[in-house]
């Protein structure tokens, strides 16, 4: 099993140096809207309080994320945006978009949040390291991969409706 995980991670690691050019404004807006919508398809062990969306590392969104969550609620829970340089288990994030920074690289952030009930979102434009959801541009559209296994290990449930939209899904273990 561990061997399979390694063979799956290997190409990602090889691709890491190929960093794409800067994102367009509409792409950023779409990603911000996606972040605001994921909450409806994810269940956390603790379903109380607002859903906190953390933008970790370099600022990718500008005020696009704030616009996306403005006035939105998911099943009665408010959406809150926080910007952090680095993240750890105690940061209070429900969803963490990991853009990476000098202080904490994306893999480091992932490691810091390992097994924590935080939906980790990574972006192929920022890093090859993959969180539970990994953005990627396919046919000029924002798409994503889902690692349901890691999500399950962290105690999160991802709706099959969302899984159906993913480019690829790493299924949870039995």
């Amino acid at each position: 099993m561990r061997l399979r995980l390694a063979s799956w991670l290997l190409p990602i690691a090889l691709l890491a140096p190929a960093v794409a050019p800067a994102q367009s404004a509409s792409e950023v807006a779409v990603k911000a809207a996606f972040l605001a919508k994921f909450g409806a398809y994810v269940t956390w062990p603790d379903a109380s309080g607002p859903i906190v969306i953390c933008a970790v590392g370099s600022d990718v969104f500008g005020n696009a994320l704030d616009r996306a969550v403005a006035g939105q609620q998911i099943d009665g829970r408010a959406l809150v945006v926080r910007r952090l340089d680095s993240v750890d288990r105690g940061s209070g994030c429900s969803i963490a978009y990991l853009a990476g920074s000098a202080r904490q690289t994306v893999p480091a952030a992932l490691t810091a949040l390992r097994s924590a009930p935080v939906l980790t979102v990574t972006d192929s434009r920022e890093s090859n390291a993959r969180g539970m959801i990994h953005f990627r541009i396919a046919q000029s559209r924002v798409r994503f991969y889902i690692d349901d296994r890691v999500a399950a290990e962290s105690g999160l449930g991802i709706s099959s409706k969302l899984l159906a939209l993913a480019l690829g899904v790493r299924a949870r273990g039995r």
Binding site: V30, F34, K37, A40, Y41, S159, K161, L162, A164, L165
Partner: peptide
């Protein structure tokens, strides 16, 4: 019910 996510994320294809 089956197309909630697809509509939500604007996935016309789906």
């Amino acid at each position: 019910a089956s197309i909630t996510a697809a509509v939500d994320f604007g996935d016309t294809q789906a």
